[in-house]
Design a protein around this nucleic acid. Structure first.
Length: 502
DNA sequence: CCGTGCCCCGATTAGTAC
DNA sequence: GTACTAATCGGGGCACGG
């Protein structure tokens, strides 16, 4: 009898708890859906803005091309390496300008208005230049559109990384994945033989991107406020979930095992993939810097990153957050596309119901963001000793040791096969950070290493060296004529030029 | 000592000429 | 199909600074 009574009481308690849990889940799912809808709306606005910008920039590009055709008809003929022309546009602006001036002087041409403009403005050949301009104004456009920005300037936010995240994740929805690549350190302005004479990413971009900082500051106050709200919510959710619920798995290094289960089942494998793999990778990778350039493209970023990220070991949560946001948007877009209006919340509801550990989208975002920051701190060692939770995910001392081991392994290019450094541009992962840095030039088009004999440019020094070996071995004659070390590039240059120009 | 950035070498892949 | 070359990446190892 007593046990029967106890069972009935237990049953009733469980029922009450279950009902409460369901109600809470529904409530939070609805809340999350609202966030996603907001994201979708903002994304649509972003798309519109970007379309307009795109059209503007296309028009500018056409004008520029026309200008270039008119005034520099020999530009393409002056070099056998068109890439060199394009990529050198900034660094060799002065060089170009010299050549252009020479042409103009030869013709004794009186500059028209257009020409004067062309003289005072860089010749826009490559799209990144215009892309950056887009971003320069997009921030303002975005602020105008959303009307969410705070006009007042604020002091330093409590955490730059958090601020970066919020800035990207909340108030700047128009960040595209490729724009979050500014963190890529660059193969610096190289030196010596193979001296970078073909640098495509110009210093001016470095400065121009840094000029975005004030704009960031303008938003910082609101950003901090938003962050606080989110943290409060986060605390609530984590308190609800209980820290013990999300103990980090020490054995498999799956820091996110509890974050996003079940996503594969809801028809968004992409989001799931990125959230479980790329996020965890990006989290650990990106060096952050105080005062990040705002929204450069990948190609823009390669340059600045050289100067800004070196020696600044903290993770760049900006990029990670942008990545995260991209996938949240992906989810939202897919949801919108795949489901009729009004069904998305139900769908998400059902998805979450099917998984006891599945975080609701908003919770997921918040936790992901928080965990991102915390993780970055752990990975960078900036807060290794004090960080004890991943947004409510308990992290034992041994887990910290594991994280530290992982970090060491990753950074030293460990033998685990792990590729924690992911290119946001193409999604490729790399074992070492420097490999990612080196890879960035693929997207930037930068070819900093130039063969001293033939002038051909290469992305990597080893490529240039192997190429130079071809000069040595290209013919019995050249073996004798070309010095083993290009002390006298002229003779070898003549020989190699005939080869390249054939 | 450790973390980090970087260099160097070698392997692989893709493109091109013959 | 083969050879050659460029492009790219992986990994070992060194240098330097904290």
């Amino acid at each position: 009898m007593a046990s029967c009574n106890f069972q009935s009481q237990l049953l009733s308690i469980m029922e009450v708890l279950a009902k409460a849990a369901v109600a809470e889940i529904n409530k939070r799912v609805d809340d999350s859906c609202a966030v996603i809808r907001l994201e979708v709306t903002q994304s649509q606005r972003d798309i519109d803005v970007l379309k307009r910008k795109c059209q503007m920039m296309e028009g500018e590009l056409k004008k520029t091309r026309v200008r270039r055709k008119v005034f520099y008809p020999m530009a393409s003929a002056r070099s056998s390496y068109p890439v060199k022309i394009v990529l050198n546009k900034q660094r060799s602006n002065s060089q170009w300008r010299d050549g252009e001036m020479a042409v103009e002087e030869d013709s004794q041409h009186q500059p028209t208005d257009v020409e004067q403009r062309a003289e005072t403005e860089p010749i826009l050949i490559k799209d990144e230049e215009t892309t950056e301009d887009v971003w320069k104004t997009d921030t303002q456009d975005e602020l105008r559109i959303t009307g969410e920005e705070s006009s007042s300037k604020s002091g330093q936010p409590s955490s730059f990384e958090q601020r970066q995240f919020d800035e990207d994740f909340i108030t700047q929805p128009n960040i595209s994945p490729e724009d979050s690549m500014e963190h890529y350190p660059n193969s610096d302005g190289p030196e010596e033989p193979g001296t970078p004479r073909c640098t495509s990413v110009e210093k001016s971009k470095v400065f121009s991107t840094e000029q975005h900082r004030p704009a960031e500051d303008e938003n910082s106050q609101e950003l901090v406020m938003v962050k606080d709200e989110k943290e409060e919510e986060l605390d609530q959710t984590t308190a609800l979930a209980g820290p013990d619920q999300f103990v980090m798995d020490e054995t498999d290094g799956q820091l996110w095992t509890s974050v996003d289960p079940g996503r594969h089942t809801d028809g968004h494998p992409d989001f799931s993939f990125h959230s479980t793999e790329e996020y965890s990778q990006n989290i650990s990778i990106f060096p952050s810097q105080s005062g990040l350039p705002s929204l450069p493209t990948m190609t823009d970023a390669v340059g600045p990153s050289v100067h800004s990220s070196r020696g600044k070991p903290h993770a760049n949560m900006f990029s990670a957050a942008a990545h995260m946001k991209k996938h949240v948007r992906t989810l939202a877009d897919e949801t919108r596309q795949q489901m009729p209006e009004g069904q998305s919340s139900e769908m998400l509801n059902s998805n979450n119901d099917g998984n006891s550990l599945a975080l609701q989208p908003r919770q997921h975002q918040h936790r992901a963001s928080e965990a991102t920051v915390r993780m970055s701190e752990c990975m960078t060692g900036s807060n290794m000793a004090t960080t004890s939770t991943f947004s409510g995910y308990s992290l034992s001392r041994s887990s910290f040791n594991m994280v530290k081991r992982m970090r060491t392994q990753w950074r030293s290019g460990g033998t685990t096969g792990e590729k924690p450094y992911t290119c946001e541009q193409c999604g490729r992962s790399f074992t070492k950070q420097y490999n990612l840095i080196r890879h960035a030039v693929v997207h930037s088009g930068e070819k900093p290493y130039e063969c001293t004999q033939c002038g051909k440019c290469f992305t990597q020094r080893s490529s240039m060296k192997s190429h130079q070996r071809t000069h040595i071995g290209e013919s019995p004659v050249s073996q004798h004529v070309v010095p083993p070390y290009p002390g006298d590039p002229h003779t070898s240059l003549m020989l190699s030029q005939t080869r390249w120009n054939k």
